[in-house]
Design a protein around this nucleic acid. Structure first.
Lengths: 328, 328
DNA sequence: ATAACTAGGACGGGATCTGTCCTAATGCCT
DNA sequence: AGGCATTAGGACAGATCCCGTCCTAGTTAT
């Protein structure tokens, strides 16, 4: 009877969870060794994890073992340093141009992760981030991930926010606001907040915000003005959003083209009564036209832009530049 | 004295950790309420977390509170459903074309996450993944994230792997192998494994692998052949890798061009004694030339490709296609 | 100054945890 | 078919730990 070792139960459970998250099978004996407890205790711990809702699967028989499988709820993720860095970099890279719907959660996750990311890993993230900078947009309206995470934290923590806002005419003003929600539509981000100086609700374009920081001050949430908050958000943002429709004809059958086209762009439809082997893709987007043009040309099919005029102009310009680059 | 509530200590600690990961401050009283224990116990729990290495910071004074800050080690990440989905989607999007160094960890993290991702979230990930498919490569050498995660799990779990391999000439063969390591260089992924049929070590290009699955069978790791494993890997992959050098002249000063060019492409240098306002970028990459061409044209400066010939041809082709798309 | 919070010591009773037995059932390998 | 290693779980006793209830001290914003 050697008595209990120094490590206490909760720590051991966490360690066990960490071990089980490695994608392999762990025999009870090995776990007992690693955790420094008896085999019986390991069985009890595993029972406990199961009761907590983390489904541990066991294979019986010789070289059986335990392994954590998918269950009803997300168990706590136990990441090593490199994995944490990889996730941070991945999320930051995607923060600017993700899909509608994921991106808010993505920013929340990033904020959560960066809140607890050890200092020694931060510079690694920053370095890699710099190396992986994606192609900058035509209008340079890129958003620093830091800006988003600071804002997300402020929203979640109900803290007042100070920042500099650059209006459409280029003039900059200092603002102080109570951030209410961070939303993204297409590729644009908006902060809905109560502007304390203007004493009214405002919607800010995040790409025009700089130097945001959360003052420690907490605030009690206000009522949104016009009835439903969701409705207000929708209208408030729609007013600011600049989307445009486009129509492009591709050479090829609808099936051929669809196979090479990113799904979110739109679905190609065969042109009625048109000349054989052409189909048309119509859609709407808020992306810069350069971005769209690149997507279209990478599909590998001949195509003709029908609208808008801006896209036609952009396609011509890029085409000319590329042709000249080829020394034609 | 109401006695102890039903929840046991480890569960409570996990719940506490989860609450503290919300980016806000929690007063002790509120935590006590939520956890259903006395305030004193909350203090003790927080002490415990600190001893475990998770630094909980406390603000004293009125409306102070607790909050989890960055410490020495990564605490377990407690994600809600949406955050988990966002991370999965982000990592999968980045899996194909991440930066050297991060990507292996990135795949490990993805494998870890998908191992425990609740079933009801999986289809959401798949749906979003389909929507966010990036521009497909010219040569179609894209890799399904599933392939990578299956392989990563097999490597970590020392499980045998079966898959179909498409050789360079297009012929397909079934393989059975003991996966040793998954490495990525530039944008290419390689699986280093012991081929059980050929009875020798092989390096497989992952983009030529299909239908991989891990048979349950475990194997004992073999010795790598030529001395240092790292050395073998390096040479084995170098043999397969096809990189090429490129040289591109840009109109503009080095500073101007550098500002618009992704950093990993290379650093522009002013041409000696050349005509004013041109600079040259030289680099080496394994990317498909289409990808490179897009990066170059998005920089927004006039440019001329000097080498390689493939890039010149590609630039001409894309330029022609775009010009025709503009109806020129 | 007052209020509200964190920080932590002392104490006792009850719950809990652990190791050591034990038996049963399952699957793999020879 | 038989043997072996594994998971699964009951019973028990003793040491340990945990929790709530007191208490005091220190800090900060109002």
């Amino acid at each position: 009877m050697l008595g209990r070792m120094t490590t206490d139960t909760p720590a051991r459970l966490l360690q066990l969870l960490s071990l089980l998250q490695t994608p392999r099978e762990w025999p009870g004996g090995e776990l007992a060794d690693r955790l420094g407890v008896s085999r019986r205790t390991v069985r009890r711990d595993i029972d406990r994890l199961r009761e907590l809702g983390y489904p541990v699967e066991a294979s019986k028989g010789a070289d059986g073992g335990y392994r954590l499988v998918a269950g009803k709820a997300m168990p706590p993720l136990l990441l090593d340093d490199e994995e944490a860095v990889a996730i941070a970099v991945g999320l930051r890279a995607g923060a600017g141009h993700a899909v509608a719907g994921v991106d808010e959660a993505s920013v929340r996750a990033l904020a959560k992760l960066e809140q607890v990311l050890p200092a020694r890993l931060r510079h690694r993230v920053a370095t890699l981030q710099a190396a992986t900078t994606p192609l900058t947009m035509g209008d340079g309206a890129s958003i620093a991930p830091e800006t988003l995470t600071v804002m997300a934290s402020a929203v979640a923590g109900r803290e007042r926010l100070r920042f500099v806002y650059r209006a459409a005419d280029g003039s900059e003003t200092r603002r102080q606001a109570e951030p209410y929600r961070l939303v993204s539509t297409g590729r644009r981000w908006y902060l809905v907040a109560y502007d304390l100086d203007r004493e009214d609700w405002r919607t800010f374009r995040v790409d025009r915000v700089s130097e945001p920081f959360a003052t420690g001050a907490r605030f009690a949430p206000r009522e949104m003005p016009t009835g439903s908050a969701a409705e207000y958000l929708r209208r408030s943002i729609q007013r600011q959003q600049e989307t445009y429709g486009f129509a492009v004809a591709f050479a090829g059958t609808a099936a051929e083209v669809a196979a090479r086209l990113p799904g979110w762009l739109g679905t190609p439809v065969e042109e009625e009564g048109g000349g054989g082997g052409w189909c048309v893709v119509r859609g709407e987007t808020g992306d810069p036209v350069e971005w769209l043009a690149v997507r279209l040309v990478m599909a590998g099919h001949e195509f003709v832009v029908r609208e808008p005029a801006e896209l036609v102009a952009c396609v011509r310009e890029l085409g000319g530049r590329l042709s000249r680059a080829g020394g034609a």
